[in-house]
Amino acid sequence: MDKTVNQKAWFLVLPVFLVVAFSAVIPLMTVVNYSMQDTFGNNQFFWNGVGWFKELLDPSTDLGGRFLASLGRNLLFSAIILAIEVPLGIVVALSMPREGWSVAACLVILALPLLIPWNVVGTIWQIFGRPDIGLLGYVLNHLGFDYNYVSNDVDAWVTVIVMDVWHWTSLVALLCYAGLKSIPDAYYQAAQIDGASRWAVFKAIQLPKMNRVLLIAVLLRFMDSFMIYTEPFVVTGGGPGNSTTFVSIELVKIALGQFDLGKAAALSLVYNLIILIVCWVFYTVMTNAGTDRPAKEGVA
């Protein structure tokens, strides 16, 4: 077959090329460029090679210590909210009605927190938790709990976690509900005939069928919580002390507070790399989970 050669076709690729260049490639390369240099303002830069990266991974330096500490806090935060939101989302999805007008009502109520802008969520909880005028803070203190998220590390953590659970459990629940709705009735009828208990139905039918959506839910929630910035920043500003300073908050402090562009650039590249790796591992592990593997021992 004859192929038509027309170099003008390149013009069709040009818009995409430009958009990707200006939205991704050029900013990313700028960051890579910064990460290799140091600056003292006045647009003067000095070559620093991989110096910042070495510092980042060395906990004895100031930069490394702050990065690793905030990374640890961030991982702990992600682990806690996943451990709460995923099971809670599943329970909410399981207890939702399957038909009737109440379905629509439940969906709307669940969707509400998802529609609120993040800084508004932060502001709501910031006020809600205040011991002097906030409903939550006031009531807790009057019930005899010494609750103050401004001065107590544990209270700050509890507030930030409860806020995230309030904001995002709906997402997990909605995804799970969609997964549950796709199970044909015949499965439930068969399970009933097989004499399966409620728990057995969950384990043998509902959980395996929700596998895919749960993968997506865990991925989304992990990424979001690992990159969390606005809500804790509005509520606690990273405090008390550094106790709720997550990696993104630390990053903004270094980049915009101290104007250490080199350190911040190196940190953000490592931050990005961690997210990519963790997502890839998650995806690989969870997509392989459902495939054939030799049975443990005969028929159990």
Partner: peptide
């Protein structure tokens, strides 16, 4: 039952 082997499926009831 997706997660089970053929044998486990038969044994389920």
């Amino acid at each position: 039952y997706d997660t089970m082997t053929v044998g486990e499926n038969l044994a389920f009831p």
